[in-house]
Each structure stands twice: as structure tokens, then as C-alpha cells.
Write a protein that binds this DNA or RNA. Sequence first.
DNA 1: TTTTTGCATGGGAATCGTTCTAGTTTACAC
DNA 2: GTGTAAACTAGAACGATTCCCATGCAAAAA
Lengths: 155, 155
Amino acid sequence: MSDSTDLKKAGLKATLPRLKILGILEEPRARHMTAEDVYKALLDMGEEVGLATVYRVLTQFENAGLVIRHNFEGGRSVFEINQGGHHDHVVCVECGEVFEFYDPAIEERQRRVAETLGFHVDSHSLYMYGTCLGMKREGRCSKRTVSGPAAPDEP
Amino acid sequence: MSDSTDLKKAGLKATLPRLKILGILEEPRARHMTAEDVYKALLDMGEEVGLATVYRVLTQFENAGLVIRHNFEGGRSVFEINQGGHHDHVVCVECGEVFEFYDPAIEERQRRVAETLGFHVDSHSLYMYGTCLGMKREGRCSKRTVSGPAAPDEP
DNA sequence: TTTTTGCATGGGAATCGTTCTAGTTTACAC
DNA sequence: GTGTAAACTAGAACGATTCCCATGCAAAAA
């Protein structure tokens, strides 16, 4: 399915900036970009898109469920394309690399905790911060992305 | 042990602003305050403390391990006094209430995931966002804090 | 005790990420 | 093709946080 149809399904007009931004986020090497990253990528492509538009579009995409916003440590938001499967994140504070993982047991325990508290969960996030393998072994980080198995769709 | 000794142990001079801020954070009803909250509390007490000092002191306390900084959704940081036991958070997006819980099984699984990735974990955080019991049942939130059992010290 | 030294402070300015505003342009149903 | 609501750009505004620097104060040295 084309990006254009994705957008229309989400109730958004298929404008050029939106298509470009969606295209950037869909590149496999693009995972976990800040708004600034997306903006710079657009400039590099020679596109005339305002930073405000990037923010607006990313927020619209978030509301439409097309992307997921993360609030990693440090205050700035990072965005990743929503490919269905929920997963959690491991962030290397040395090299900035982000690893992903999914652990069904953790998900299940979270569900149970919420149930016990009588709490209706809209979203949840789990982040681990530290240093990655390469950092310990070679004094520098490994700079690779380990994507764990994806989960079936979940809130 | 007095606040003053706490500070000295952390390698910080026991100055008036630091003592006052620590005192505020130690009040049982004070859990999870923003820098602004702390600043306002100081003004209410008639203390002449600059906002910059509040931020500086909170960051020092964080580095010294006296307080923990959380980046909840919405961009602003909240601080809570570090009472040793690690715990995770459930945030009601309706009433802003924050519940705490600790689940040994989740902690253990996280440890295992990090181990598998060869990742050294400095810190980790788990947040669930949604609506709390009272919200569902009475159309308003319960406004109570359920503190789960605390864990033995852990990174 | 006096002097020195150096960290701590307060206030305001600066910065950062993000959002709003105003006026202009565009997509799309007709 | 045309009308209209929605989307766009640039720049100003915003809120949270940090920086800057002259001043204050407390421990160490003289």
C-alpha cells in the first residue's frame, strides 16, 4: 500500500510534506529520529519544509497512530514509525544507539499490575539506560541495532 | 540522621537553600514535584531562593543519588526523594495522580534482557499511562497514592 | 583574628525544543 | 476548472531549563 493511501486512511490529506516525512521515517535506517533529525533530512533532500510543519505533522501522525513518540532521558522527543508490534527500548548513553526488545513475560506482568490497581492503561513504556556491548569490550560502542522479535498488536 | 549529614555525606555543603529543598522533598505528601513546585513551596515558606538555584540543587541531588528525576510524558521533569527502594510508576492522565509499584518478576526479566544483549544497565524506568480506578468508577479520579512494596536497593 | 580561596547564590539573559499566529498556498470534491 | 477547508511557511512566542556573572559566605591558611 502506498504512503498516500496510508495517509488518507488516517484521515489526512496526502500533501507533499506529509509524504516526504512519512517516506523518511519509513527508511529502515531511520528508526528513532528527533523532529530536528527529520527536518535536517528534508533539507538534505533539498525540500523546503518548515520545522513547524515537521512538528505538526509528527504530532498528527502520532494521533493517527502512524508513529510513536518516545520521551527518552534528556527531554527531547524521538519518533519512530509504528510497525504494529509493541516493543521496549534499551538506550546506550555512550553512543546514543537504541536497541529494541520485546518480552512477553514483562508485558503480562504489567497487565496484571494495572489490573490489580484497577487502572486502565492507554500506553506504557520501558526504557533501560546504560552502555552497550561494544563499549565494554572495545572501549567504543557497537553501533548496531538489535531488533528483538516483534509482538502482536497491543496498546 | 539529619538532612545536614545527608548532604555532607553526598559531598555537598549544608547550605540553607539545599537544606530547605531537601526538607520540602522529604515531606511525605511531597512526592513527585516539578522544579516549579519546589520553587513555589519555597516562596510560600517565605524563602528567598532563585529558580536557577532550585534547578541547580535538584541536579546536584540527582547526581548525588539523593533524588530521582523522572521524565514523564509532557516534557517536564519531576523529582522524588530517593528512599532506596526502586519502583516503577503508573500515571493517571486524567487527574495527574502517580501510583507506584514494584514487581520483582519484571525486574528480573529486565536484568535477563540486558544480560542477553551484553548491556550494562545504569538505570531503567517503566511508566504506564492511563486512567485510574476512581475515574472509571465515579467519573473522577481517586486521588490516592498506592505505594507498592519497596524493593531492596538496585541500580 | 584577618586574609585568602573557592564554591554557592540570585537574577536576569540566553538557549533549547516546541507550539502558536498570520497570511499564503494547496488538495480535493464538485 | 473552481471554491473552500485544510495545510503550508516563516517567524514570533512560549515554557522549561541552563548559563553567566557579580556578589556572598564559609572553610582553610596565615
